[in-house]
Write a protein that binds this DNA or RNA. Structure first.
Lengths: 172, 172
DNA sequence: CTCCCACTGACACGACTGTTTCAGTAATGC
DNA sequence: GCATTACTGAAACAGTCGTGTCAGTGGGAG
């Protein structure tokens, strides 16, 4: 489906939005930065919304790859936090938060459903890390919802303050 | 400092951004919606950034009023969650999240410091609700950081899914 | 060689952006 | 009455936005 040139430019654009944000990106500066032109971006992705959608999907692919990598096993929460708090992942997570907020404000457009999708993705991972006799109980649902809240609230704090010591200590 | 007309228009603009979001607001549609003109908004607030800054401060005033209202006492977390999960407050909280994310992506401009400021505001409230012998210990800091993370993570979940039953159950 | 197709460059279109200029009006203080 | 102050209207500014048009490239397949 996607040509070689398309994925190549998508990767370059992805690197660009990781540092510039997705909210007020515009075609001309983006094209100039990645050595392309608006004409080509429009040709390959159909429209700006198409490009944004592709970028969002690209970001989500990173996220899903992580979740698959973490797998199930014990200490999922600790290992997830280790990944979330890694300084190298901060641009990606800032972008993630931006897309999350945007999808709430503007339920239409390319952002649609992004926030809800990630909640489900993560809940499922946390679910598969639970013991079988707990997984399908209300208590199990509450437990993984709480774990998810803890991780994401801590992430919010970390992204704002950068105070990794305090936030990591709060997660035991 | 602020004239009567200025606060009147600020309130109207605040009501407008609560439903339309702050990210891609522009002067002409906003002015038309609140029965004013770009000329007047610019006259009163100096620039668009000035207006955005005033709106952000207005939103923060709502937040601080809440925190003062909650006070200290026991069960702060429960009472905070009660407020956070109230359907009536959802537009405000969506706006809050939007400003939070934006201030991380774009550390300059009128958004600057918004995220960090709210972290500190809330931590202080949670701090003053702790017993005196715990407040100044590392364990106390970790405890309130964890409480804050739990509340905000739960809020993220709630805003995305609207599943108040599940999220509230997760907070005991 | 020829045809086709993925890709690209230059440019213009209309709409919209924040801001400025110049002009008023209405009320207030002296 | 007069001047000052607070506010408002209309129009234009230069710039950027996403997108469309028309014209090419280059290379691989038949």
């Amino acid at each position: 489906m996607a040509s070689a040139r398309e994925t190549e430019l998508l990767e370059a654009a992805y690197r660009y939005v990781l540092t510039h944000g997705l909210a007020d990106v515009s075609l001309r500066p983006l094209a100039a930065a990645i050595g392309s032109s608006t004409r080509v971006l429009l040709y390959l992705f159909g429209s700006k919304d198409g490009l944004v959608k592709a970028l969002l999907a690209r970001a989500r692919a990173d996220e899903l790859a992580l979740l698959a990598d973490i797998g199930t096993g014990p200490d999922v929460v600790a290992r997830l936090w280790e990944w979330l708090s890694a300084p190298a992942h901060r641009p990606l997570l800032t972008l993630w938060l931006e897309a999350y907020a945007r999808s709430l404000v503007e339920p239409n457009g390319p952002w649609a459903g992004f926030a809800r999708a990630t909640v489900e993705d993560w809940l499922e991972v946390l679910s598969s890390a639970q013991s079988e006799e707990v997984r399908d109980t209300p208590a199990g649902l509450a437990a993984r919802t709480r774990e998810l809240a803890l991780l994401r609230g801590a992430l919010l704090d970390l992204l704002a303050t950068g105070d990794e010591k305090r936030v990591s200590a709060a997660l035991e």
